[in-house]
Amino acid sequence: MKDSALYYWRLSKESPDIYTKTSNYYNIYRVNKELSDWENAVLYADSFIVCYDSIQTMNDRAEIDKLMDDHLLELHKYELSVEQKRTTNLLLVSFLFFVLGLIFLFMWRDRHRKNKYIALQKQLMDNRAETLSLNEQDICGEDKNNKLHELKEAKAGICISLFKSTEGYKRLDELQKAKPKERTKIIKNYRKLIIIDIKRTFVDVMEDLSGSCFSLTADDLLYCILILLHCPKEIVMDVMNVTSDAIKTRKSRIKNKMDKELFDDIFGD
């Protein structure tokens, strides 16, 4: 049976598969050794060793390739991690700069608003001083009246600008843009605030109106200011909490109390 085994092993040693070939060389070497055929045993032993070394070399190369692939994979992971950290840091820095930019913008706008408010207050003080000085002068005539009229108009404009910086103005503007159902909620929560800011901001204008027409009531003055602010009729009704007929009656009563020129300046008739 050994001769038959050797015959088939010698046939299969031509196999292109190195593992099959190495196994065959080893088996042929082992059988020849048992048969004391030392020449063939040594020959096939050498062939076995060569093939075995080739297999070891292939395995070593495969192991090296695997290590290189693992190294490249880890290197790629590391590069991705570094890039991700860089991107995260960049986004974080960008966000911080964005927040700082918003803070500086807010501070700039707040400072600009305060400077504008201070400038308007100064204009109002200058207007008061000029009006007081003009009233103290013992001068009569059309020029003085025209100058006082100009000062009062300028004062009204300054007060309107000052009112635009108040919370009451924001709510009044919100009220004018709101739908009927929303207006009910706004006027319920902010009616008192709107009236307080109007009276506090337009105190000079109200004093001028009272000085020109002593019989005007507090509600009459409030109505005049709302008209100066160009509030629609329904907004006036909401703020003053009155009906349309009451508004018509009040306007007619003010017309009877006030001289025609002043009435026309306010109501535009």
Rank of each mutant, 00 (worst) to 15 (best):
L162V: 12
A129T: 03
R30W: 08
A129P: 08
R128Y: 01
R61Y: 09
T243K: 05
S133K: 00
Y223V: 00
K33E: 10
R61C: 10
N115F: 02
N146G: 06
C213S: 15
I118P: 10
S252G: 04
K114V: 03
T20Q: 03
M1W: 08
S36D: 13
N145Q: 04
K13E: 12
K199E: 01
T184P: 13
L222S: 06
N146I: 09
I195N: 05
K179C: 04
C140T: 02
I247Q: 00
L148E: 05
T166D: 01
L91H: 12
I194N: 09
C213Y: 12
Y117F: 15
V236Q: 00
V82T: 05
G211I: 13
S252Q: 08
Y52Q: 05
F106Y: 10
K170C: 09
I28K: 08
K114A: 07
M107C: 07
I139R: 10
R183Y: 02
I139S: 13
N59Q: 11
K233P: 06
S165A: 15
P180Q: 15
A178Y: 03
E153H: 07
H76S: 15
L102T: 10
K248T: 03
K199C: 03
H71F: 03
G157N: 11
E130L: 10
T57N: 01
R113M: 04
D264F: 10
D60T: 07
S215W: 12
N59F: 11
W108V: 00
I118S: 12
N32Q: 03
D220P: 14
E207Q: 03
L102E: 13
F106L: 04
L73W: 09
L102Q: 13
Q121A: 09
M68Y: 08
S23M: 08
R253V: 07
K185L: 15
L193Q: 09
S23A: 12
Y190K: 02
E14N: 14
I247H: 00
E150F: 05
L193M: 07
K251R: 05
K122G: 14
R111F: 09
Y52H: 13
R191L: 15
A178T: 02
R30D: 11
N146Q: 06
S94V: 01
R200S: 06
D264N: 10
N27K: 04
L262R: 14
K185Q: 14
S210A: 09
K179A: 08
I187S: 06
K155H: 02
L75E: 06
P232M: 01
D3E: 13
V42W: 04
I118A: 12
H76L: 15
Y117D: 15
K114M: 03
D264I: 13
R171N: 15
T249F: 02
L175Q: 00
Y25G: 04
M68L: 09
I139L: 12
G141W: 04
E136P: 00
